[in-house]
Each structure stands twice: as C-alpha cells, then as structure tokens.
Nucleic acid binder design. Structure first.
Lengths: 203, 203
DNA sequence: CATTTCTGCCAACGGCGTTGACTCAAGTCG
DNA sequence: CGACTTGAGTCAACGCCGTTGGCAGAAATG
C-alpha cells in the first residue's frame, strides 16, 4: 500500500550504485517515511517491524538490513533534537517565558511528537542515553554557562527537569488539563517556576 | 531456584480452599514476590512472563491464570500509590521544601523504585491512566483545594508536572547529576521552583 | 458419594525481532 | 569483454514472547 509509482525504474531490484548515486535507495526512504509516521502515531512498542515493512511495501528483513535493528530505526527517525537548538537563548530576565513560548509553539509539531515517542520508549537504555545527551547539549550546557549566582550547573539541570516534566505530562495527558488549554495560561504560570531557577537567588 | 521450602505442605497440588482460607495460594504469592523484585529491577519490557514464572518456580500459564495478564500483574505489583498519600500536606509557606523532602526521602525506597518502573511503561495506556489518576488523587486534588489566588487547578497541576519531571529525571539519570548529590542541594534549589507555583501570585 | 470449583501442568497458537542463505543486477577492473 | 566484487532484495527459519484451552486431580460442597 505505497502510493508512489511502483513502476519507478529505480525500484527495480539491484538499483543503481556507484560514485554519483544517492546514498539511499527507494526502499530505505520508504522504510524511513513509514517508520516516522507510525512511530510518531503509536510509539515504539505499538509498532512492529513487520508493520513498518508492510507500510513501506518491502520485506521485513530489509528493515534490519538497512537500519540494523528496530531500535536503531526508531532513534534514527525520532531523534530530531536539532529542533531544540537555541531553546535557551535570549535575555535571562525573561528566559522562563521565552523557553515556554518556544516549547508550546513546537507543540503539535513534529519535534514534540517525536519527543513524546522517545519518552514512551524511555525503558530502552539507548533511548535513555540519547535523551540525557540531548538535554545536556541543548539545555544544561548552554544555560549553565550563562547563569549567574551559585549552583549554576544544578540550576540548569533542574530547568531541564522542569522541561522534561512538561513534555512528560503532555505525553501522559492524552487530552486533558494542559493540552487544549489556552497557551497563554500555562505559559504565564509555569514561566514563574522556570524563572525561579534562572534568576540569581542571591540577587 | 526458589529458596523457600519446596516441601511446604501448602504447595501440594490442589491446596486448601474454603471460607477460612487465605485468599491467595502459595504460587500466587511466589509470583507476586518474584514480579515485584524483577519489575522493580528491570522494568516492564525487561522482564518476561516466563522469567517471572521461573523465578517463582511455577508454570508460565499460572501467571495469567491468577493475574489476568502481564500488564495486570505489573500494575498490581508496582502501583503502590498510597506511598504518596499526604505528600502535599503541611503549611503552604514551606510546602515546596516539604514536598521535596518527602520525595527525596522516599528515594531509594520501594515507592520511588516502583514509580520509576511505571514511568518506563508509560507507553501502556493503562499505566498512563493509572499515573494520571495517582497524580490527581494525591497532588492535584488535595493541593488545588488549599491554594489561594487565581488558577488554583492549573497551578496544582503544574506542581504535579514538576514532581513528574523530578521522578522522570531520577529515572533517566542512571547515576548522574541528581542522584548521588547531597540531598540538601537539590532540595533547596528545586524547592524555590515549586514554591513559585504554590505562593499566591497576587500577594 | 456425586458434584462443583479451582489449582496447576502441558502443549500449542500466532506474532515478534532477528538472522543466514540465496538470487541477481550493477559496478569494477584485469 | 569477462571474471569478480558489491550490495539490494527475497525467502525461510530461529528462538522467544504473551496468551489460551484442554486436562488431571485435590479440596470444598451437598
């Protein structure tokens, strides 16, 4: 059930190879597209390799041949952490609000959907270490440098904790309190909590 | 490989039943004990039903006969939310600190271990709704009643979000920043963030 | 004692992620 | 050109998974 042209000459077995050839085949791209859609919609454990293969119109063993394993495919399609780049940039005095505006704008977008899927697969050690690294790269690291006052590293770490809490609750809340609520309300209230960690406590 | 006395007369097939009989059999208790230990140590997806049965010294099919399914057994052994009862009791002025003291005291205890396992199984819809209900019962409900000022429900909800964030990070942090650190440090810093939601913003 | 109830055992089901052997087209090079 | 290598795609199978249904037999019930 793939909509693309089945008669695409590139789909023929033993597709072109060589120097000038693109590094991915038709089947690889179909697998990646199907995996992105299915994992985002139903999570890691809710989608089987055979299902991805069927949606992509290929043999199940091709998935592991091209991507190594189900988990590697999952990380390759869901781990889009450049979406969080620059999350903690901006003036410190209003950074709490700024971070939340960015997160809630991202909401419903591919980045947050992917993060929800990653959170659902937190049992997997490799997913866990990816999330650790992502938080370190995009939140703790950049923020700790800019904070003033004592406990900079810890405060930055706990800002990441608050962000994780929000993303986690967007995940466990299928419809409820947070989602569907006017963005401004959540924003104003939670921004105070974030700002309490950003402000220099001795000032 | 069960250490208990195999010759325990109660272990004989067709153990006693009837009015005065305890509502569980030897096998049921062995399964429950093995499941508690294994799920707490390695999470939902890291433990198979057959493994629990082997550790309990019983046939795998007995697990589903007595507990219905793997997921039901998991919830029955890990869902110990009475451990969070009274979490948000105490004077509002220092409730942020008080809540964190309780949580970090619980840390390393069975309650937090079980919650880590539940968080790891957040993909399962029934686990998700259990966690929602638990937060509503022990945090959002009792706290919203006591808060003063605007947005009481939302502020209580976001306190639960912050608690979830902390528990989530205790889960994804296998060893690092938060765990192993002097309890007082995390406590003092994060308490400010919690208190920012508890205090009446108009006061 | 006859009947019901329920524990526990066994074998099997369909589905899972993954692997290895194989075919065959495309590219490489003597 | 022809031999060789490379890698995509196919097929069948492996071992493990959660779960189910049939069966034996002891305990409770009358």
């Amino acid at each position: 059930m793939h909509t693309g042209p089945v008669t695409d000459p590139r789909a023929a077995p033993g597709a072109r190879r060589g120097r000038g050839r693109p590094p991915t085949t038709h089947a690889q791209e179909a697998i990646r597209a199907a995996a992105s859609r299915l994992f985002a919609a139903r999570g890691y454990s809710g989608v089987s390799v055979r299902e991805v293969a069927a949606a992509a119109g290929v043999d199940p063993s091709l998935v592991n041949r091209h991507f190594g394993s189900k988990e590697a495919l999952f990380l390759e399609t869901m781990a889009i952490d450049e979406g969080f780049r620059g999350l903690v940039e901006g003036p410190l005095e209003e950074l709490g609000r700024l971070v939340l505006e960015r997160l809630l704008t991202l909401r419903e977008g591919a980045v947050v959907t992917a993060y929800a899927a990653l959170i659902g697969a937190i049992d997997r050690p490799e997913v866990r270490s990816y999330l650790q690294g992502s938080a370190a790269r995009h939140v703790v690291g950049p923020l700790a440098e800019r904070l003033r006052g004592p406990d900079r590293e810890l405060r930055a770490r706990l800002v990441a904790t608050q962000i994780n809490g929000l993303l986690f609750d967007l995940r466990i809340g299928d419809d409820p309190s947070l989602v569907g609520r006017p963005v401004g309300e959540v924003l104003d209230v939670y921004a105070r909590a974030l700002q309490a960690l950003i402000d220099d406590p001795t000032a």
